[in-house]
Amino acid sequence: MLTEAKKNIKLIGMYFKFNLYSSMEYRASFIIQVLGMIINNGSFIFFWWILFENVESIGGYGFKDVMMLWAISSTAFGLSHVIFGNVRRITEIIMTGELDSYLLQPKDVLVNLISSRTIISAWGDMFYGIILFIGVNGLNISDFMLFLLFNCTAALFFTSILVIANSLTFFIGNAEGIAGLISEFMITFSIYPEGIYKGIAKLVIYSVVPAAFVSLIPVRIINNFSIKWLLILFVFVILWSVFAYWFFYRGLKKYESGNLIVNKL
């Protein structure tokens, strides 16, 4: 089990290096995409800034808190797509039969599949979040360490949810729409103040669409450290990751392959 985990981490690291190197091949494109994403995300700062000029707080959150939500969601989203760039294409890979080539290699299918590609613009999301966090929170080492930790857990949440949603393809045919929808939900729910969610919505973000664990709980912990919530967060991230892994392999047994003429991109 441990050697298996080590092997997988090694594989992720290898793809990371390889992908980074090949994205650098097109340097201009890389820089444009990264900067473009930073500017794109940055425009939302003005929206919130103007809003908070007029109101004191929203659902108990001030400007700085909302920006921290943004910082974590953005960096975590970026991180998950930089490392596991193929996570959004799982449905397509299953449907076209491209999965065959991963099944022929002596590696863990899921890890091999999702980490074999990177999304260049996701680097922009990642940098943006880091800059934003330091911008609103200053350079406090312990806060920043927590920020990095929560980025990792949140990235695992994003990845797990996308793996689960896309793996539905094994069972129902084409889950691209559902996966897109769930991904939107995750992002939307993790960048607004918690106070605005009541009743069922609150239940949802703490369970099936675990957006609360992506950014809401982490910001609460950064502002007001609580070991209890930290542990709850860890338990949840492990549960979701294990479930996602299991669910993918459950579906893989139903895989029927395909014969489309495809290229590996």
């Binding site: 090949s22 039969g97 491209e98 065959d100 080539s101 022929l104 014969n259 003429i261 495809v262 290229n263 590996k264 991109l265």
Partner: peptide, 14 residues
């Protein structure tokens, strides 16, 4: 070793 004539296993851009 496996080769599918209709399916590429090499990275398209590399």
């Amino acid at each position: 070793g496996t080769v599918f004539g209709q399916k590429s296993q090499l990275w398209f851009h590399l």
